[in-house]
Write a protein that binds this DNA or RNA. Structure first.
Lengths: 384, 384
DNA sequence: CTGTGGACTTAAATCGTTTCAATAAACAAC
DNA sequence: GTTGTTTATTGAAACGATTTAAGTCCACAG
């Protein structure tokens, strides 16, 4: 099999070069339907349906019949029409997956987790991305409802979620779950990392390395993760009698770009440095912020981790690859995706059997991942 | 609106803590159908359909009638049933999107591009991820066919594509396009970066910076991009009379993990260093490889870019964020996603109107992005 | 008074399944 | 020989829309 000859003669700007203009046409293959299978096999459509779906009634069908029907189906290359099927059975086998901004590196592993679990359950994800726009969010939900998705997963990594619209789903008995956000009320399940524990782990790590002059870049106020993380930090500080230096704690502004964390990290770290108040470690809100901080520190001639340790949060893919690689508090993102999908599938099954299902709020445990960006405070420079 | 009280008491391993066990139930809201709208408005379902879809016949409908019907629809919160509609009109307004491995950072911007263009055309993407497994690939295609997607986009960033299965789509008059790969024959459109130009740009950049001792890490043999990129490099070298040093050119092995590029970069760079043959610049197959190379160089005490320039390919999100940020040859990934989606939409429109459509093989132009990882060969150390 | 042509509306067929109720045959029991 | 039960199969009615061909009704020309 050799690749077709290509013309690569194109230096044209942007999307250049449409080559190989070949027409496609074929007015054949009128889809093969169940009736066709019935015709060829000599049985009725009803029987065919029962056999091919292995419905309860199939228990009575003679083995010989089954064989004939299956053979006919195979010979014709019969493929059931999912839409027609839905019309009677009310099952679409699809789940809406809504991202607020899929560009966020946080999302990729989550998506992988969702996809994988859905695949296991023979569901297909219909993917939507709100681009952080409310109008787009609502339009997409509308489309998903028209399509009768059997469940909905919302990955709300950023900012708003309108409970009002989501309630529509609950009202229609469509199970819904959010990842990275949580709705008040008991209509929508959620999956979140245990931010408070995460905050504790981060500070604990730095503290146990001997750091006592620690700077903080806190998350934006409107992000749901910010407060509990900070609370975890405070609690741990209190428990070991360490006093947080408020003058070393800055807070990221409320931005809409997920990638703005990096720039925010750069900027706030520069601001910290200008204050000329010494710190030997920096606890950043998330990995991007941490990378930004490292960038700023390095530019100012401060070596990480030799002169300043930096810890992040999330453990996005970049964290291993950056130099130095990033110590961070890991969110098990893929597992969170799995979990959300499984919650939904469970809900779908329940709804199908007209059972009630449970709305649960999950907290998954974060995990400290130690890499190169943190190190014990060298005794020489320690003081207090 | 205050957030619901949460229990964050969980240090349990892994996915701990299901809290808030609340039952959901409601045996109400039997979906409102078109007949209901007809009933309330006092017109027939046919008229309702014509009005709500603004069908050709709507031209004859009295304005007063339209108003009444629209009002009734609104009052009832009528939402058309996409499946039922399909059964007659044969339109699903959905497009299959298949990734070979969505974990690849290369994919995220492409997905964004696809999603955005599809949204513009009121199509929804059904997302699938083959995980590089042939069986999964085929199973998913099967599911997409059952669902009667109107088009298919395959992002084949890695390894195999089975033309046999894809031909099924063409045969059924479903337009298909691949991104990052190209199928022999004229059944499937494709979008690729112009690799040859890209290769040239990379070498040209290094060459013009004065580098003459250049190491290469070439792409895996089975990757379609590898050969043309190398060819572009060779051509440029030839055109300026520069002789490529084969002993400084290594090739990545055929791996299945997209992220293996990083480790490959590390390993091959170490191997290059062991050869003790001096080089002042390194041209890597892609960004991950380049980052791996930088890692290895740095570890060996060689500063990038001071002592060795490194250039990558792709311009994935990491490239801006890494330290030093990466000079690279940019693939306009989002634009490629847009382009593929638009090709598909165009094909769908053609198929709808029973016109033929054109199979095109697009080459989009790469773009040199200069960042920190390359710099002019300092005169002091230049020689030849 | 009849015929014609527009304006407006709808009855009914259709799409490809699933599923309920009915039928028919075979066999057993009395 | 009637009745009953199990086994094997099917006719026909949904499901919720779209679309074609056929009405009505009315005004106006011949």
């Amino acid at each position: 099999m050799k690749t077709a000859p290509l013309q690569s003669d194109t230096n044209l700007p942007d999307d250049a070069a449409a080559s190989k203009v070949v027409k496609r046409s074929s007015r054949k293959s009128e889809a093969v339907t169940m009736r066709d299978v019935a015709g060829l096999s000599g049985f009725s459509p009803a029987t065919v349906s029962i056999v091919l779906n292995n419905a309860p009634l199939a228990r009575y069908i003679a083995p010989a019949t089954k064989k004939k029907i299956e053979e006919a189906a195979r010979k014709l290359g019969y493929r059931p029409n999912a839409m027609a099927r839905f019309l009677r059975s009310k099952r679409t086998n699809s789940v809406g997956v809504m991202f607020f901004d899929i560009t966020d590196p946080f999302c990729t592993p989550i998506l992988r987790g969702i996809e994988n679990s859905l695949y296991q359950g023979s569901f297909l994800p219909i993917l939507t991305d709100a681009h952080n726009q409310k109008s787009r969010f609502e339009r997409y939900l509308e489309m998903l409802l028209e399509r009768h998705v059997e469940g909905l997963i919302v990955v709300a990594n950023w900012l708003f979620v309108d409970i009002h619209v989501l309630a529509d789903f609950a009202k229609r008995n469509i199970p819904a779950a959010t990842i990275g956000w949580e709705l008040p009320g008991d209509t929508v399940s959620s999956v979140m990392v245990d931010n408070e524990t995460g905050g504790r782990l981060a500070l604990e790590h730095l503290y146990k390395l001997g750091h006592r002059k620690i700077a903080f870049i806190r998350g934006p106020k409107t992000l749901i993760d910010s407060a509990p993380r900070w609370k975890g930090i405070q609690k741990y500080a209190h428990s070991v009698g360490y006093e947080l230096d408020q003058s070393l704690a800055l807070q990221l502004p409320d931005e809409f770009e997920p990638s703005s964390g990096f720039e925010g990290g750069v900027r706030l770290t520069e601001e910290l440095l200008q204050r000329r108040k010494k710190f030997t470690a920096l606890l950043a809100f998330d990995d991007l912020t941490a990378l930004g901080a490292i960038r700023a520190l390095t530019k100012s001639g401060i070596k990480v981790p030799e002169q300043c340790s930096v810890i992040g949060f999330d453990d996005i893919a970049l964290s291993t690859l950056s130099a130095p690689s990033l110590t961070t508090v890991r969110q098990p993102m893929e597992a969170m995706g799995n979990l959300a999908a499984n919650i939904i599938i469970e809900g779908i099954n329940a709804a199908q059997e007209k059972r009630d299902w449970t709305i649960t709020h999950h907290r998954v445990a974060p995990e400290l991942v130690i890499r190169e960006s943190t190190r014990a405070l060298s005794l020489s420079s320690s003081d207090d």
